[in-house]
Computed example of a mutant assay.
Amino acid sequence: MTATNQRTLSAIAREEGPRLRAAYPDVFRTDMKARAVTIGTIVLLVGLFVYGLSILETTWWRVFLGLGELGKFVVYMIPPNPETLSKALVYVHALAETVAIAILGTVLAATLALPFGFLAARNVIPSWIARFFVRRSLDTIRSVDALIWALIWVNVVGLGPFAGVLAIMTSDFGAFGKLFSEAIEAADGKASEGIKSTGGGNLHQVRFGLLPQVLPLFASQVLYYIESNTRSATIIGIVGAGGIGLHLYEQIRTLEYQHVSFIIILVLIAVSAIDWVSSRLRFAVIGVRQT
């Protein structure tokens, strides 16, 4: 829009403004009640934030002092050095195990959660009682963190990567169930209505009306969770669920900060590589969908 047009619109607004306010007073009247509610909500949230900082003994001065300590750790971690090639190979092997845990756990979780996503969707299951039990079950599983699941599975199946896979799978099962059901509920219902009008049954509506719409979104969510779970698998390794987490914890405990920085760089490279691959796969899926 040119400057001339802007001036013209401003002039029209100045000329027509009083007439419109007089003709439609209810539209231009300030809703003092709504404004008071908005201001009160903002003040309440700010007050709760400040109160939370005070009871948690959080001060910016402590953060400022902590930055100096953080700088010392950074100095200790430079340069990254595994000392020996054999040690570096051990770390690389453990990292590969971590990535495998993340991929297997995520894929298993998505596969098991797919039918439950449909069972929890309002436009697939009309019975609110059935949806209620499915949704609450997913909420219960999702409310437990992956680290807690790792502790549980380590005691059930023993130490090792299998416990890590089960922990990632169980934790993400509830999350995928919720995400899948919300994506299904947000899908356009016209395709399903068209299939129904031609004599298609409920399964046909799901297979040919809903599934093609939501599959690209499902794929995008699964790819993101693979990347995220690579970091989560690093943490759960600390409790004995396999992967590079145990090595990271041991090196921090023994103050081998150069080893720590080497492991962190390996994890960073792995996450970046997974992000690059997932981006290519996501665009490939979108391209296939559009064609």
Rank of each mutant, 00 (worst) to 15 (best):
G47Q: 03
T140V: 15
A96V: 07
F28N: 05
T98G: 06
V90A: 13
T38D: 02
G242N: 04
A13N: 06
V267H: 00
G40F: 08
A94E: 11
E57R: 04
D145V: 03
D188M: 09
G237A: 07
S232P: 07
G174F: 08
D172C: 10
F262C: 02
G194V: 09
I103N: 07
V260F: 06
V63Y: 11
L217A: 11
P115D: 15
G245I: 11
A34F: 01
P216Y: 02
A13F: 06
Q258G: 02
D31E: 03
E57F: 10
L268A: 14
E185L: 13
R21L: 09
Y24G: 03
A88L: 02
Q258T: 03
I39R: 09
A186F: 12
I264M: 15
L56A: 14
T291P: 06
G242H: 04
I235G: 06
L266G: 02
V46L: 09
L159T: 11
A23C: 00
Q205V: 02
P82D: 12
V90R: 09
D172M: 14
V90I: 13
P212A: 00
P79T: 11
L210G: 01
I103T: 10
A175S: 08
A233T: 05
S143E: 05
K33F: 08
F73G: 04
Y249C: 03
T38H: 01
P25K: 03
Y224P: 00
I265R: 09
P80M: 03
L159K: 06
A183K: 08
S197F: 02
L89K: 00
H204Y: 01
E227W: 14
L255N: 12
G189Q: 15
A120Y: 14
H259V: 00
Y91L: 03
L114Q: 13
A23M: 01
V90C: 04
F133R: 10
E185D: 15
R207A: 07
